[in-house]
C-alpha cells in the first residue's frame, strides 16, 4: 500500500447546528482543493462508522469542532496516538463518537498508523443556527494546517522508505 495515495480526511459534524458544522465545511473545502492522493469523506459522529471508515487507511486526519474553553476560532492539532485522547469517552447512548472510536480502536488494534485530529474551537451549537464569524474566519488557517500536515506525513513516509 502506497502511503502517498492513502490519506483519508474525515469531516465530522452536523449542519444547521452552529459551529458543529465546521468539520463538514472544512471537508468540503479540502474536497474542492482536489489534493492528489487524499480522499475526503464526512459524516455524523458515530464511533462504529468512524472505525469502519478508517479501517485499512495508513493516514487519517479527522476534522471536527472542539470545545476546550479556549477562544472561539482557536485551531487545535491533537495526535491521539501519543496517549489517551479524552477521558470518559463513552458517556451516553448517543454519545459514542470520536473519542470512543479512538479509544476502542486503540484497544482493538484498529487505529491508522498515522492519525491526527484538527479541530476548531466552537461556542454556539443552537439548532438551526449558522457558524459563528470567528469559526468561519478560522477555516483557511485550518485548511493550511491540514495541508502542512499532509506534507509532513509525506516527508516522513519518504524518509521511511529507501529511494528507488
Amino acid at each position: 500500500m502506497n502511503e502517498r495515495t492513502d490519506i483519508l480526511l474525515i469531516g465530522l459534524g452536523h449542519r444547521d447546528r452552529g459551529d458543529d458544522e465546521v468539520g463538514l465545511a472544512l471537508a468540503d473545502e479540502m474536497k474542492a482543493r482536489r489534493l492528489a492522493g487524499v480522499d475526503v469523506t464526512s459524516g455524523a459522529c458515530d464511533a462504529a462508522w468512524i472505525l469502519e471508515t478508517w479501517r485499512g487507511r495508513a493516514g487519517v486526519i479527522v476534522v471536527d469542532c472542539i470545545r476546550s474553553d479556549r477562544p472561539v476560532g482557536t485551531l487545535h492539532r491533537i495526535d491521539p496516538l501519543d496517549g489517551p485522547f479524552v477521558d470518559g469517552a463513552s458517556a451516553s447512548t448517543h454519545g459514542m463518537g470520536l473519542a470512543s472510536a479512538v479509544e476502542l480502536g486503540r484497544v482493538l488494534g484498529d487505529l491508522p498508523r498515522r492519525l491526527a485530529v484538527v479541530g476548531i474551537e466552537g461556542a454556539s451549537f443552537r439548532l438551526g443556527s449558522v457558524m459563528s464569524p470567528e469559526v468561519r474566519t478560522a477555516l483557511p488557517g485550518a485548511a493550511s494546517m491540514i495541508e502542512a500536515l499532509i506534507v509532513e506525513w509525506r516527508g516522513a513516509a519518504s524518509a521511511d522508505v529507501p529511494h528507488a
Binding site: 469517552a89 463513552s90 459514542m96 470512543s100 479509544e103 476502542l104 484497544v107 482493538l108
Partner: peptide, 11 residues
C-alpha cells in the same frame, strides 16, 4: 466500567 474496558478482555 464501559465498552472500552470490556474490549480489553473481550474484543
Amino acid at each position: 466500567e464501559d465498552a472500552i474496558s470490556m474490549a480489553k478482555r473481550n474484543d
